[in-house]
Each structure stands twice: as C-alpha cells, then as structure tokens.
Nucleic acid binder design. Structure first.
Lengths: 171, 171
DNA sequence: TATTGTTATACTCTATAACTATA
DNA sequence: TATAGTTATAGAGTATAACAATA
C-alpha cells in the first residue's frame, strides 16, 4: 500500500497543485488523488471568489441559491426548499427572515395545507434575482474557464452524474 | 436573461438531480448549471459518507489530511501543513494537539529555525496512517464509481486543473 | 521588522430539542 | 401519529487579535 508514481525528490509533474504559497513544495500526491480533498479545495477557492463577485447583491452563497430556487419555483414551500438545498429547516428560517426583512421574498400560508408556508419573490426580489442571475452566468463561466468550453461542459455533467447517483442511492 | 431549455411543466431530463427526497420535483435547472452549487452538494454527500467509512480510524476529514501530509512529508513544519491544507495555523494547532495527545504525531523544535516545529508520525501514527490510507483507496474508488474508470480519472484530472489554475492565479 | 507557534476569542454554519398548529 | 414551521441553543469549523520566541 501507499504507492506513488513519483518520489518526493523527483516530482516534475505534481508540484504545487494543492499547494498554494509554501516555499519548499510538499509531496501532496496522495491527497491530489483524493476526490473529496480536491473538491474541498476547489470549494474553498470558489467561495472566496464568490463574495467579491456578488458584492453588489449582498447575497451569501446560501441566500443566492434560495433566491434562484424561489424564482424558478413560485409558491414552493419552505420544506421543499430546505430539502432541495440541503439546509436544515431551522437554518432556512433564519435566511428567509432576513430576505423577507429586505422585502425580497414574501411568505404566505398555504391554502391547501395550512401548516405550510409558500414562498414567492416580491417585485424587488424579482429584480434582485435577475441581477444575481446575470452575475451568476459570468461567475459560472469564470469558474470553468480553466477547462475550456468542451471540458467545462463535461465537468459540469460529471458533477451532475455524481450528485444524482448519490441522491438516488440515499433514497 | 434567465433562459431555460425546459419549462417547469416539461422537464423530462433534469428532474431529481440536486433534489433528493421531495414529493413534487422542483425546477433546479439553474443551480444545476452552477458549478459552485453542484460542488457544494457533492461535498456534503461525500462528507456524510466519510464518517461511517473512516469510523475505524476516528479521523475527521481534516485530521485525515493532516496525517497523510505528515506521512508523506516527514519533518514538515506546522506552517507548511497549514498552508498546503488551507487551515489557519491556530486551528491546526488544536488538531495537532489532539493527534499528539493520541500519540500519533510527534512535535519537535526545528534545529534550522528554532521558531518552527517539525512534525513526524509516531510508530502508532504510522500504523494508523497506513490503515487510513488503505480505507482511503477504497473510499476514493467508491466516490468516483458512478463515473466509471475512464471518466473517473478524467474528473480527477479536471479537478486538479481547476485547483491549480486558481492556486497559480492567487500568487 | 517579519515569521512561527500559541492562546483566547468571536463569528458563522450546521445540527438538535422542544414546542405549536395543522394534517 | 406525523409533518411544517418556529424558537432557542449547542456544537463544529473558521477567522482574527494579541503575545512570546526567534529570524
């Protein structure tokens, strides 16, 4: 066990991959072969870029995803959003209270099920979502830019396959 | 702006992708085109699977990555580990205190730079890392299994390209 | 003057328990 | 009896400030 292709003394290919700023390059080949680790590194990087890019909207990644989900699913209930975005209901309530306080989202008791609360965007929310989505188009393009068009599309498709496989398996 | 290929009423292809358990399927096509969102979904799923899979080692993902990094880089300093793994030094100190308390890692003042602390695995740590790495091999295989061998390798390579591009650009 | 490690602390995210009102 | 929403709270993860020792 623990076989690496290139020894620490001779790593012509696998130098500073997950190794941003250190002086002497470390041997990170093992973790570079670990999808979970690499996905976490990439997510950290993308989150860092998210906030300056979306500064105009003031949305966090979670708030952004809620806005887009409500935009595309008018009268969706809070439970449905929580489930789709993998956010615990109590945590979603806080996010929604904030968005409602900014007059971006309206909450309304459902007629069909009086326990449920249906969500819709307000006029201001619709505007904000439109601007957020425009920024997102550019952001998504930048995110995948290092791969080029063809591989970028394929990467996104592979992500979907992986996520879908696990969502299905967890049922 | 905001153009979707399939309207909510007719989404033959893009149903339950990031939408695990809800009754009526939501329209998630917008966020499914968002790499940052999909990467986050995938990371959540992988983390959930991590803990049962690595229960035997008792390592968290962060602890696991520290153990492997020290294994492959004997006498690495704390700063170097923190930088490579994107962990703040104060937070790494806590992790190392725990691993040292379990007699898995040894800390030793550097001779070259008496400010620095060099890290090596203990005998127990070497054993634990070997077992952790064996489990990791299986875990990594399972993680990429839905893609098959060829695409799995390509996905990992694309991850590296994306991470490397951003690490380089941030310099 | 800058860097390494350390402590203490604050902040954000996420998870759980308990409650209500409806189903 | 179970579910949707809410509140309060606990816990983990992450970030910052201040300090001591060394460069």
């Amino acid at each position: 066990m623990h076989k690496r292709t290139s020894p620490p003394a001779n790593k012509s290919l696998a130098d500073d991959v997950a190794n941003g700023h250190s002086k002497r390059p470390l041997d990170m080949t093992a973790l570079q072969q670990t999808p979970g680790f690499m996905i976490r590194m990439l997510q950290i990087q993308i989150f860092e870029e998210f906030f300056p890019h979306f500064a105009e909207t003031g949305f966090s990644p979670a708030e952004h995803s809620v806005m887009i989900t409500v935009r595309d699913n008018p009268s969706v209930t809070q439970s449905e959003v929580a489930n789709a975005l993998r956010i615990q209901l109590p945590n979603l309530v806080k996010i929604l209270a904030k968005l409602e306080g900014k007059d971006l989202i309206k909450r309304k008791r459902s007629d069909r099920d009086k326990r449920a609360v249906e969500l819709v965007l307000t006029a201001r929310g619709t505007q904000a979502a439109a601007r957020a989505w425009a920024l997102a188009q550019e952001f998504n393009r930048l995110t995948l830019a290092p791969l080029g068009n063809k591989d970028g599309r394929q990467f996104l498709q592979m992500l979907s396959r992986l996520v879908r496989a696990r969502s299905a398996g967890a049922d």
